[in-house]
Design a protein around this nucleic acid. Structure first.
Lengths: 256, 256
DNA sequence: CCCAATTTGTTCGTATGTATC
DNA sequence: AGATACATACGAACAAATTGG
């Protein structure tokens, strides 16, 4: 898709401020000129001349583009404003802002994880090299024995979510990859900030860990069906573990 | 989740510009004070005093927040900067910017639609009121007979995507709702901008329409399983229809 | 190590635009 | 219509960062 106009109202009066108009014009310029990440945009002075506007106006436009993650700016000789590929981190943060105001529950997230994680697992079967598989295995070390303290339990939960983020990294489908990572990131954040982790349940903890190990084997063997089924079972287990928690709204957790 | 820092690097040196720091501080202020959409932030003069910075610096910070959709500003008496709930339109646009640089294919989108649309359908069974169901039915009018022209075919394709956006509106799960809408929006945009629609195939067209009608019936009857199965079949049909198209990268379509 | 050139970053004072009463 | 309260925009000067000699 082309860089999309960021206006809120679909059919609103379109009365944008000057910086907003400049930002839109520059986006269009990038598309029209076919500029790629790394390419340099005209400098401030140049833009001031082209648009016939004050420096502050141009600078505000740049901030808009920068906030969207579309450009980066550097000072000094050879500096300037450069087209930048929107980073995953930035996209995550911007999307998280949207859900900040929604009443997203743990159950909501797990509904999607249940549907998508098995899909990811299946698509990865037989497609990971040894280095990737070893990295996944190495991650198990972080939760290879029951947690002794709440602190440790928290760390283990985050580590087990990292397993999913690592899988997401290798997905061919950018949309699927982003989503899995996004959900793991949100769950991770909740865990860290508010101690959302299951009450100690060694049995479920053991099962979850075993599912992940079996999954890695299925991936190594290139068995897509086994990978899908194992991940599905893993998600069901994790979901059950989460259901123990009340489905408190995430905002209630974090927005004191 | 709390309004998330928008920095790119996870463990980067954290050297933010002043406007960026001010923007972060204001975000934190909103969270700490528990401000809700509609609440007024301190005025420019006030912020200049608090932060001890120049007007332009403060203004650039406001642009950053505005670009993220977190605030709106109004001029005049009683005006100022107000906390704003990030709109779906804005979130869509910001996320689309991320995928602009990825090589997202039609197949990628359909992989997720296939997994998520049935989930949505099932969760909606028996939960729509007559007005909503009637609106869905009314939408069929837009594609109740085979398209005569390419123009018409395009319009019909967009209308049938609108059916899914309408369903998304009613989802309880905000994440699921957003995603379905996002995907329909992207497919719609591609259709409009580049004429991506199936080559005339009356048989598949008829089947797709019939699936949607059967789906509405299942939703009316509160039959979740039927709704899920029907939507799954609908997605398979649509996917097959799309596979006829080569899986060209979306960017190739739109970024001339 | 310092100096000079280049480019963005920041400040301040002033003036204009806009909505409310 | 006029006064008021706010954001919006301008322009000139100065500061800071980076690069290369």
């Amino acid at each position: 898709m082309r860089p999309v106009s960021t206006r809120s109202g679909a059919s609103a009066p379109a009365r944008l401020s000057r910086p907003e108009r400049v930002a839109e014009a520059i986006k269009q310029f990038v598309v029209d000129e076919g500029l790629a990440p790394g390419d340099r945009l005209p400098g401030e002075a140049d833009l001031i001349a082209r648009f016939g506007m004050a420096k502050s106006t141009i600078r505000e436009a740049m901030r808009i583009l920068e906030a969207q993650g579309l450009v980066k700016t550097r000072t000094g000789p050879g500096g300037g404003t450069f087209v930048h590929e929107v980073s995953r981190t930035r996209a995550r943060a911007l999307l998280a802002n949207y859900f900040y105001f929604k009443n997203l529950t743990i159950a909501d997230i797990y509904q999607l994880r249940r549907a998508l994680e098995p899909e990811l697992a299946a698509s990865l079967a037989g497609r990971l090299d040894d280095a990737a598989l070893d990295a996944l295995t190495a991650n198990f070390a972080a939760y290879d024995r029951p947690a002794a303290t709440a602190e440790e339990e928290r760390a283990q939960h985050v580590a087990s979510l990292r397993f999913h983020a690592m899988l997401a990294e290798h997905a061919d489908n950018p949309l699927l990859s982003f989503l899995i990572d996004f959900m793991a990131s949100i769950l991770s954040e909740i865990t860290i900030n508010r101690g959302l982790y299951a009450p100690p349940n060694p049995e479920l903890w053991r099962k979850g860990r075993e599912y992940q190990k079996r999954l890695v084997e299925a991936l190594r063997d290139g068995d897509a069906d086994a990978a899908r089924e194992t991940m599905a079972a893993h998600m069901d287990t994790a979901n059950a573990l989460m259901q123990v928690q009340e489905a408190r709204a995430i905002q209630d957790f974090l927005a004191h």
